[in-house]
Amino acid sequence: MPPKGTFITFEGIDGSGKSTQTKRLAKHLEGLGHTVVLTREPGGSVGAEEIRRLVLEGDPDRWSAETELLLFTAARRDHLERTINPALAAGHIVICDRFADSTRMYQGLSRGDLRHKVDALHDLMIGTEPDLTILIDMDPSVGLARAKGRQTAEERFEDFGQDLQVKMRAGFLDLAKQYRDRFRLIDGSRDMDAVAAEIRKVVLDYLT
């Protein structure tokens, strides 16, 4: 049987620095000789990137939380089939900016109690959890200011405002307690180099 790779995900509120840190980690691991697949959600495959535009752009009320859950799950399934699973089967390290934990928060917690539906659909259609999850924790007001400062078309969730970010932060911290075996909590309020150094240590400790 082919070797199984390692699946690492990054989670956190909007503007917490996940995208920057995933890129820095991937570059560091590649420098050590690892084969790394850097990907993101929603997205990471052709079909999933098409769905990304549907869910991240437009008016905040464009979709209900239930419809979003179906769209995100469809994107994740395509992503899993076409990108994540083949890379893991080849023994590579997959680093993903967001995965199912974000759906547990943004659709399962944000606008009603849909967590049981999120978990049921995940078990039915996805059935995969990361080996290691890096949670970058940050003050919601700081994260939201960073996210809005990017001024991209993908600001649908940021447009829900700070109350959502506060709720998401609390939810992510609760998730870290629920899945303590795979979560590692990182203080994202420090400068990027300090955050990157701690993440490298956590990941290298896990890999060895």
Rank of each mutant, 00 (worst) to 15 (best):
Y206D: 01
G58N: 04
T67P: 09
H79L: 03
L54R: 09
R82L: 05
Y206P: 05
T39Q: 02
H92A: 12
A89H: 13
F160Y: 13
G43P: 00
G171E: 12
Q107P: 01
G5S: 08
S189L: 02
R200D: 12
H28G: 07
T83A: 00
Y179M: 11
F10S: 00
S102W: 14
D193Y: 06
E129F: 11
L38H: 04
G143Y: 10
E158F: 10
A194D: 15
A120N: 08
A65K: 11
R200H: 12
L32N: 13
A75L: 06
I84L: 01
C96A: 10
L144G: 01
D193E: 15
M138A: 03
D159P: 00
S189N: 03
K201V: 05
T133H: 07
L175A: 14
S19K: 08
E68G: 04
P86V: 05
E57L: 05
T128M: 14
D193I: 11
D205C: 03
V142A: 12
E41M: 03
A26W: 02
L69R: 13
G171Q: 09
E49T: 07
P42F: 05
D123V: 05
G44V: 11
P3A: 10
R200A: 07
L25S: 09
I13R: 00
Q178R: 15
V94F: 01
E41F: 01
D131Y: 11
M1V: 07
I93C: 15
R111P: 07
A196S: 14
T9H: 06
R40N: 03
T22E: 11
K27W: 12
P86I: 05
R169K: 08
L32R: 14
L114N: 15
L175S: 12
G143K: 04
A65R: 13
F72C: 05
H122Y: 12
A100G: 02
G12C: 06
L71P: 13
R77A: 04
G43Q: 09
T67R: 13
A120Q: 12
E158P: 00
D61Q: 14
L144W: 02
A145P: 00
G17A: 03
L38E: 13
K117Y: 13
G31V: 09
T133Y: 05
L124R: 15
P86R: 08
M125L: 15
F160N: 12
H122I: 06
F72S: 04
D205I: 03
L71D: 03
V37M: 03
A170Y: 04
R82W: 05
A100I: 09
R98W: 02
H122R: 11
L185N: 08
L121Y: 10
G15M: 09
L173R: 15
T39S: 02
T9I: 08
D61T: 03
L71N: 05
